[in-house]
Design a protein around this nucleic acid. Structure first.
Lengths: 154, 154
DNA sequence: ATATGTGCAAATCCTTTGCACGTGC
DNA sequence: GCACGTGCAAAGGATTTGCACATAT
């Protein structure tokens, strides 16, 4: 999906919810959408400020949940203090697992098609309706532990 | 496993690591082990103080990683600011998923035997070795949304 | 025009840490 | 005895919030 089309989708989402399409919100969108990797709120702030230097940290934090709700972004919480975000260009967020390397500190996104099936099955037995599911694998780097280096390490 | 046996197992673990079996650590163990539900660090502090009122918050936070490493406890992070802990009387921590109800705020622990298989498969493709995996399903309560109440709600 | 949104800085919340004192081995 | 552990209170770091001003509709 092109950024123009995606931006329009975001505008519609805002309208539908009677939220305003402010220049800051759009700057944050424009900063987030092209990112190919995971990023933090702080990194997003930096990028957004290059587009519109009036953007404040508070607005980034207030906008992130909106971007997540409109499924432009996926929130990735690996339990490390800060949350990560990832552009969601495909649209489906319930079938993706994360593999987090404790050595590289890198996050891989992997398709896990059985996840939503599992969520529905288990939830219905409890009288619940699934909202979403997260599957995360923590792992360590073989090459790092053998050679002391890892090609992916920063 | 009885609490006496489990306490001895914990003592051995401390010894093996050359950590000391202080009265505070054992009080915290005794407070954690019998808990049948999930609890937070703060709740554990309260319980531990009933056993030994000298226990401090700092020591609880310093002891929790030890209890987790000795697999007496499992850490459950549902991405809500604070972490939860759960007594691990069975011993296997890699095959359990959590279903978290957003209405009840209740956490259900469910067996998910395929998880470790998935972790290994995916990790090896990336040249990684899995350390552990978390599968969490967020859900909402059917009865709560239909009747406005939920038996499990506090 | 006016309800919403914004920036700023202070507040929050859980968790970690420095330090002087206490205690298991 | 001495290294390790503890309590206390202060620090830390990500996120949230109150308020006066700005702006989209």
């Amino acid at each position: 999906m092109s950024i123009t089309a995606a931006r329009e989708k975001f505008r519609s989402f805002l309208l539908k919810r009677r939220l305003r399409a402010t220049t800051q919100r759009l700057a944050i969108f424009d900063a987030a959408f092209p990112q190919s990797d995971h990023f933090t709120a702080e990194e997003l702030l930096e990028h957004a400020r290059k587009i519109d230097d009036s953007v404040s940290r508070a607005t980034v934090y207030r906008t992130l949940p909106i971007l997540t709700a409109s499924s432009q972004l996926r929130e990735v919480d690996i339990g490390s203090g800060e949350k990560f975000y990832h552009a969601n260009r495909e649209g489906d967020s319930t079938q993706i697992a994360q593999v987090v390397c404790g050595d590289c500190a890198k996050i891989f996104e992997i398709s896990a098609p059985f996840m939503s099936w599992y969520g529905s099955t288990v939830s219905s037995k409890l009288g619940l309706t699934p909202v979403n599911q997260r599957l995360q694998v923590s792992a360590r780097c073989n090459s790092f532990h053998q050679t002391g280096t890892c090609a992916r390490r920063e």
